[in-house]
Amino acid sequence: MKAIITVVGGDKVGIIAKVSAYLAKHSINIADITQTILSGNFVMMMMVDFDNADTDIDTARKELTEESKSLGIEINVMNEKVFSAMHRI
């Protein structure tokens, strides 16, 4: 199962490291990633693969939301099929 993770917030050291460390800890593979700084805001989008993960998307969403609070950013996790359906023209 694939998911889209979006990360948005003020740019600061360690955002990519914390999110990536969480994913690695739970064997969630990063299939694709893009990140940029827009007007001082950090913006990252990742497509991740849960096929070998030791957790599910709901647990990851909850735990990454908690992590986002400590970083002062917003992290969203959405099933790739739902994300694609929402952004289809």
Results as ranks from 00 to 15, higher is better:
I30N: 06
V48Y: 00
D49A: 06
D58Y: 04
M44N: 08
M86T: 05
S84P: 01
A3L: 05
R61C: 06
G40I: 12
L71M: 15
Y22P: 05
T65H: 11
K2F: 03
A3V: 09
K2G: 00
I89D: 14
F50T: 00
T55Q: 13
V48P: 01
A53L: 05
K69Y: 02
S39M: 15
G10F: 04
A21W: 01
L23K: 02
V43L: 13
A3H: 02
K18V: 08
T34I: 09
T34W: 05
V77D: 05
D11C: 07
E67L: 14
M47W: 00
L64T: 08
K18S: 14
G40V: 11
S27R: 08
D32Q: 06
E67I: 06
N79K: 10
G72A: 07
Q35C: 13
I16G: 14
S68L: 10
S68E: 13
Y22E: 01
T59Y: 06
G14L: 08
N79F: 05
V13S: 14
N52W: 06
V19Y: 04
I15C: 10
V19Q: 01
V82H: 09
G10W: 04
I75W: 08
F50N: 00
S70W: 03
G72T: 07
S20P: 01
S20K: 00
D11S: 10
V82W: 06
E80Y: 01
E67D: 03
G72R: 09
M86E: 03
F83Y: 15
E80V: 01
A53S: 12
T36P: 09
I89M: 15
M78C: 10
M1P: 02
T59N: 11
T65K: 13
A60H: 01
D11N: 15
N29T: 09
E74L: 07
I73E: 03
L64N: 09
G10H: 07
K2T: 01
T34Y: 10
A53F: 04
G40T: 13
A17T: 12
V77C: 12
I33T: 12
D32G: 06
I37K: 07
N29W: 05
M46T: 04
K69C: 02
R88S: 13
E66Y: 05
A17K: 14
D54W: 09
I16A: 15
T55S: 15
D32E: 11
V48M: 02
K81N: 08
S27G: 00
D32W: 03
M44T: 07
S84F: 08
D49C: 02
R88H: 12
A21Q: 10
L71W: 06
E67G: 00
I37G: 08
I37H: 07
K18M: 11
I28H: 03
I33E: 10
A17P: 02
S70P: 00
V48E: 00
A21H: 09
D49M: 03
L38Q: 04
E63G: 03
A3F: 03
V13R: 12
K25W: 06
T36C: 14
F42M: 11
D54C: 12
T36A: 15
